[in-house]
Amino acid sequence: MIKFIEPLLIEYSLITAFALIGLLVWISYILSGRLTRGRVHGSAVAILLGLGLAYAGGLVTEGKKGLADIPAFAGVGLMGGAMLRDFAIVATAMGVHLGELRKTGSVGVLSLFTGILVSFIMGGCVAWAFGFRDAVSITTLGAGAATFIVGPVTGTALGASSEVIALSIAAGLVKSILVMIGTPWVARSIGLNNPRTALIFGGLMGTTSGVAGGLAATDPKLVPYGAMTATFYTGLGCLLGPSVMYFLIRSIV
């Protein structure tokens, strides 16, 4: 039986990836509901499981592309590759309304730039502390401290190594999970109970899944406000990461 299945999975690799990732996401949402009562968002669990599978794939094949190094799962590499990834990320910009952004005012824009700058500085300092000395790696880890999307987009653009890119995703993931779990706990002390603060919160934190999950656990009515600025954070981060931030960090290093 396996003799027939494997060639089929290899020939229709992208379809195999859709089925596999769909299954993974389904399991993740069940785990999220059962084990954490939805406190850790299903998408965060799915990404964690994905990283876990990548680790397993790396152990089995000793390759550099995680699960995608196993021939039957090569389509995962295509599905998660630069082409489809960038395509899907750009599509999320559809959730943003220009008029609502204008209403956010200058504080919202200011929070976006500050959130990105502070994250890059924090991530960059940690990279330096852990012995990274090249501007590309420091910028990529700084980008990862922004979000787990800005990290790989910046890393790919600058030609960072796969290990550093994986590290930047892990950093972004840590941030995303922390925001998801921590938001309801700190909401009261940072005054997170109105649309304006939610917009600023989204702009400063940036991680869309983290902000959406965290705000949903705090007050579902705040989600669209925080998610809107967070959506811009990713775009702005992708824009500034491989350009302004890279030049800034290169001039310091």
């Binding site: 990836a17 990404i47 994905g50 990283l51 599978l53 990548a54 790396g58 998660g80 489809l84 290990e163």
Partner: peptide, 13 residues
């Protein structure tokens, strides 16, 4: 899901 696939094809090891 695309981000999940991206995570699954990284050099996590």
């Amino acid at each position: 899901p695309v981000i999940v696939a991206m995570a699954a094809s990284q050099n996590v090891r």
